[in-house]
Nucleic acid binder design. Structure first.
Lengths: 149, 149
DNA sequence: GGGCATAGTTCGTCGCGCGAATTATGGTGG
DNA sequence: CCACCATAATTCGCGCGACGAACTATGCCC
């Protein structure tokens, strides 16, 4: 199914271009998107993003250096840290997220409303069908985190 | 269209997992796939993969070190180099490519034959609609190269 | 054959991802 | 109460990947 592969590249290119315009790397964009809504501990973030803890330290370091996220002490566990958006990060990710969604939405602009709905339904099922088996996954299989959302 | 984004992650995860099992990085896998069929010059490869020349030198270096590709002198231009698969690289990419395609094909296994065809048709149109504008792209927009193929 | 274009490489810089080792705190059982 | 194991993060060293700028060497053309 070449179309699946090619559409995947399309989406990735859109995401990458959008991130670049907002001065973000794809990973930093992803981090900010995950943090929309609530703060996360480092371990929790690692699980969500499918990264090793040590990878996360660096990602959060760089994003923090850019003033977009902040490490806050966890009131319930002095070992732990809560990673949260700064006001600047929150403002940025709001724009980035909206803009990225807008561009993704435009990809199927050549399709009629009926067709778009069909596409969404079919893809939705493909995604659902293939996310259940994640439960059975080998420990070495990196999982993909949901995106702009 | 969240389904588009999520399916894109799905495909990427499949590609990454497949590459890992064959001892390849995604980039090296991509390089090998492009080289199936014929050899390329470095500049030509850069255009095809959407990479700067300097990025390519390293990628080809590492892949060559692994014995999968080879730099051959270009008979028509002593400055230029032809990058080609070694026998080992050719054998490996045959398997890798076939296996990756097999796995991608399995993603929509929950859909009926009719639905798969519809999905392919719709996605095909989305891809087509969105590859033409590449002609107008700004020089700073990295383009995605077609994949397992 | 002087001068510009083209093909590749080198160099330095950064981001990213990992595992192993480390530090510090939490929790629990004796 | 404290020894001990578990857990939360960080640090370190490694390699891959991507880039731009500077460089070398060859081709090409007037």
């Amino acid at each position: 199914m070449a179309a699946l592969v090619r559409s995947s590249f399309l989406v990735d290119a859109v995401y990458a271009a959008s991130a670049r315009e907002y001065g973000l790397t794809q990973q930093q964009g992803q981090l900010l998107c995950v943090l929309m809504g609530r703060s996360y501990g480092m371990t929790e973030l690692g699980a969500t993003l499918g990264l090793a803890k040590s990878s996360l330290t660096g990602l959060v370091d760089r994003t923090e250096r850019n003033g977009l996220v902040r490490r806050e002490p966890d009131p319930r566990d002095t070992r732990a840290v809560r990673v949260a958006l700064t006001p600047r990060g929150a403002a940025l990710v709001d724009e980035f997220y909206a803009e990225t969604c807008r561009r993704i939405d435009e990809l199927p602009s050549g399709l009629g409303p009926q067709e778009r709905e069909t596409l969404a339904e079919l893809l939705g099922r493909v995604v659902l069908d293939n996310e259940v088996p994640v439960v059975f996954k080998e420990p070495d299989e990196g999982a993909a985190a949901g995106h702009p959302g």
